[in-house]
């Protein structure tokens, strides 16, 4: 940001006659006097003022709320209060880490998170590319509106819909059965559970996820497409060499942000379905916290689990950001 003072003067002019007044020696670049904090504040007062509402929001609702993590180190009882509840050191973490059910839930969460990352994360991108290639504004707007809709349906309904269609007495098996074919066991089948939940989340959220990608796609310079088309690039080449590079920063940004809460695979979706397949495959961290933390009032243990999830999320974001820098991307922050 600091501007180096341009050096004035310099070597004597070649045509200078002897006796002329000497040309001054080149001076060291002039250092701008360092302003004090107060001076800088006075200068930027207006900008700081503009920022203030945002800062207050973050302090109160995000940083302030962080102090709630205190209860991870306390035997928190709601009606006694945070301050008067007894300190228990890291007991809550010990309890958590010593519980095989926690590790089972953590394992399921990681597997589902990875499946979501591989199959769900690219889905909105693919859908956005597809939508973007649609000609006809009316059709595109209509399709867009339709694919947004499932986002606004609650998980209770979505799960019920899947049960109605794929369940043992659902539509699909009804048709198979009526035609004398053997039925297939999807709902309630532990082996099919993980793919099923990923399919559900794609069905529900892929349309909504296209919004940011569509905005990014709208910003790609049309001329690049024209130029590459003239050079003989087909659809695939244009996608690979124009579209994807143009929206790569957005993809990377979203990917990194997704990593931050990757362990939050969703509560309702699993809460509604875990009983059908059993905790061995259906328990995730959020439902585990609900059963062992909230239901029995072990808020300390629940907070400990949440804190660990948060710390892991931060670590993942940090690492992914570093990697993106290595790859020459801007990432989330520098």
């Amino acid at each position: 940001m600091t501007v180096t003072a341009a050096s004035t003067g310099g070597t004597p002019a070649p045509d200078a006659a002897p006796g002329d007044p000497p040309v001054p020696e080149p001076r060291a670049p002039k250092v701008k006097p360092k302003r004090t904090r107060a001076q800088r504040l006075r200068r930027d007062l207006f900008l700081v003022g503009l920022m203030l509402p945002g800062v207050i929001y973050f302090v109160v609702f995000h940083y302030g709320a962080l102090f709630g993590n205190l209860i991870a180190f306390k035997d928190y009882v709601t009606f006694i209060g945070v301050w008067d509840s007894a300190w228990v050191g890291i007991d809550n973490f010990t309890v958590l880490l010593g519980d095989p059910d926690f590790w089972n839930a953590a394992g399921n969460t990681v597997v589902i998170a990875l499946l979501q990352l591989v199959f769900f994360f690219p889905a909105p991108l693919a859908l956005a590319l597809l939508l973007n290639s649609l000609v006809g504004d009316k059709i595109r707007r209509f399709v867009q509106s339709v694919v947004y809709l499932p986002h606004f349906i609650s998980w209770v309904i979505v799960v019920a819909l899947f049960n109605q269609v794929l369940g043992d007495v659902g539509v699909l098996n009804g048709i198979l059965d009526d035609n004398g074919l053997s039925t297939i066991d999807i709902i309630g089948n532990p082996d099919a559970f993980k793919p099923l939940v990923v399919v559900q989340v794609i069905w529900k959220e892929a349309g909504w996820g296209t919004i940011i990608f569509l905005a990014a796609l709208a910003n790609v310079d049309e001329q690049l497409y024209e130029a590459s088309a003239i050079d003989g690039a087909g659809w695939w080449r244009r996608l690979w060499h124009v579209t994807l590079p143009a929206i790569r920063p957005v993809i990377v940004l979203l990917l990194i942000l997704r990593l931050g809460d990757i362990l939050t695979v969703g509560f309702e979706q699993f809460f509604l379905q875990r009983d059908a397949v059993g905790p061995e495959v259906g328990e995730v961290l959020d439902t585990f916290i609900y059963w062992s933390g909230i239901q029995d009032g072990h808020f300390g243990v629940a907070a400990a689990a949440g804190l660990m999830k948060g710390v892991l999320g931060v670590a993942l974001v940090y690492t992914a950001n570093k990697i993106s820098h290595r790859l020459g991307e801007q990432g989330v922050y520098r």
Partner: peptide
Amino acid sequence: AITGAPALIGCSSDGN
């Protein structure tokens, strides 16, 4: 907090 856990087992209280 995580790695330090095993070292500190035992400082529990039955508090509330």
